[in-house]
Design a protein around this nucleic acid. Structure first.
Lengths: 252, 252
DNA sequence: CGGCGGCTTGAGAAAGATCAAACGCTGTGG
DNA sequence: CCACAGCGTTTGATCTTTCTCAAGCCGCCG
């Protein structure tokens, strides 16, 4: 079963030389911002695959940012049916909802070995007061998450099983690619079919049959408990989804 | 078909005497904040039922806040299938996503006659710089929207049709009640069954049969192209959903 | 070797979609 | 005042998608 880890262990990468800055995807920081961030970040947290970072109902004193690896967040009904909500990857914020509103209302778990930056939520107010630009970035990220969830909702509510699957894999592939997770051009998405099922709102059996159809079209290949996305353009076309460009993504 | 309206018309209620302040639901403003808000608000917009406020693909110079009435936001697939995402009501922000990120990626429409407060998105930066507390409130609202979408996603993905319907109506009733829209104890939700269907990801026919089951249990009553929620506690129990308390809701 | 987790397959059952028709309002024009 | 059109709702019949149950396969690890 899932383990739980909580305590920052070790300082690791300083913000100044954060590897995410190299991706042209992100905006640049001022010196002041960098100084503040360096102090705001209180450590790094490394988690094994399968470890629960934050649990539904918990109240954590920290918020996090993904530095390396894949995570996913999900919540469940009382009868145990689970719904995956999203997959935070490099550069994404984790725990903002709980940081602002109160308890966690979903669970966040490591999908691969993961490295997170840890921040104290008690200093969020200070961040807002001293660095409006950073505050703006946080809000930007929240708005983008909202947009992604809109998209997921449309997909689950109105697309057929195959299109839904195509959308999901295209989405994940694009997202991974944008943060530098493609190796020689293709993205390997580290999800089990069971997890895909719980993301699409389908049963595992039906998901399996559905994914086979995408594999037959050479859009994906299943390998090593995960999915090689062979042709994300093809998936996008097939699902009827396309990626909307966004004005300058911030970074935090 | 839906009309489109765009221009603020008339100044209406001053922020100082905003009726929303009376609901103990919202946090209080300082004098400074009130001053700023009074200037930030550039007018009011009244829309008839069915009018489109913001359209998918548009780029508006404004963001809005609902002062009176019901709205809904939705997006569609190319083949015309529509998914309703949420129902902004009194006190909710509209257009933040587009305000921060770029184009609108969903459409917002008036469900009843509506009064909106209009703000200039170009002054958002200034708000963040001068009033960190207000910036914080905006982020709070974004995080709460995220949380609501999480809940919707779980519902659509994992609940049965009846439970989904029960959840939706309980949710809307609670929400309406919280902002003072209950008349002698019960809430009238002004949605057609077609709209409910597009929110639940079901067909209209099946939605009709599903709602009948809830009506048979005396949980709701259909009347005047809308739904009287007779027993939201009952709906909540039936759907397995419960309302999570939130720490101090801000206001904007 | 045995067990477990993840994938695959088939068969029958259930949930929900689609098609078709009709009803009861309401508003409009003759 | 009536005829009629349009929208929202209701109902029944049939078709499709997806679920559930059940079993088997494979590779990995203890």
């Amino acid at each position: 079963m899932a383990k739980t880890a909580r305590v920052p262990n070790g300082l690791g990468v300083p913000c100044r030389s954060c590897p995410l800055h190299e991706l042209e995807h992100f905006r640049c920081f001022s010196e002041d911002e960098l100084d503040f961030m360096s102090g705001f970040k209180i450590g790094e947290l490394r988690l094994d695959r399968g470890t629960v970072l934050l649990e539904e109902g918990a109240r954590s004193p920290h918020i996090f940012t993904v530095l390396e690896g894949w995570t996913f967040r999900h919540k469940s009904l009382e009868d145990g049916k689970r719904q995956v909500l999203n997959y935070p990857v490099r550069g994404d914020l984790i725990g903002l909802q709980a940081g602002l509103i109160g308890d966690m209302q979903h669970t966040v778990e490591a999908l691969t070995p993961v490295v997170l930056c840890v921040f104290e939520k008690s200093r969020l107010r200070e961040l807002f007061e001293r660095f409006p630009t950073l505050a703006f970035d946080i809000t930007w990220l929240a708005a983008r998450e909202e947009r992604i969830l809109d998209e997921h909702l449309l997909s689950i509510g109105r697309r057929s099983a195959v299109q839904r699957a195509a959308y999901l894999l295209a989405f994940l592939s694009r997202r991974a690619r944008a943060v530098g997770l493609a190796s020689n051009g293709t993205v390997h998405v580290p999800v089990t079919q069971h997890l895909v099922a719980d993301t699409l709102g389908l049963s595992t059996v039906h998901t399996n049959k559905t994914l086979k159809k995408l594999a037959e079209r050479k859009l994906i290949r299943w390998r090593d408990s995960g999915c090689d996305v062979l042709d994300d353009e093809g998936l996008m076309e097939f699902s009827g989804w396309f990626e909307h460009p966004t004005d300058g993504r911030p970074f935090i």
